[in-house]
């Protein structure tokens, strides 16, 4: 198998996730797109770890998975708080800090 197969697949997932973050209005859907970006990074880490013959790639992928779990927990708490205050999770309506 070629190393580039995995890297290009991860790149495609990353770009689709970036598109989702830009385009989606729903807060939960934005979080889903962020999860896809983090997974693309994990594929890259594990692929380079396998390429270099070390387990370090998997180790850092595990760290990223743990941090992603913390991130999605906090993110959903924030989305719930926005929903409770504004009765909507449309991120384009959250512009209180806009000048």
């Amino acid at each position: 198998m070629l190393l580039n197969q995995f890297l290009l697949l991860a790149g495609a997932l990353f770009c689709i996730g970036v598109y989702g973050v830009i385009v989606r209005r729903n807060g939960v859907m934005v979080l889903m797109s962020i999860e896809m970006i983090l997974n693309a990074v994990n594929i890259n880490l594990v692929a380079f770890g396998a390429f270099n013959g070390t387990p370090i790639g998997s180790v850092f992928a595990l760290f990223v998975i743990a941090v992603a779990a913390a991130e999605v927990g906090i993110g959903l708490a924030i989305v719930l708080l926005i929903y409770r205050n504004k009765k909507s999770i449309d991120f384009s309506e959250v512009d209180t800090l806009k000048g």
Binding site: N42, A47, A69
Partner: peptide, 22 residues
């Protein structure tokens, strides 16, 4: 993909944490 790359432990963690929890 993790299985293809020979990283079984990361694959198992992926299924447990992402599909199971997140």
């Amino acid at each position: 993909q993790f299985i293809f790359l020979g990283a079984e432990f990361a694959a198992a963690t992926q299924v447990l944490v992402y599909i199971g929890a997140i």
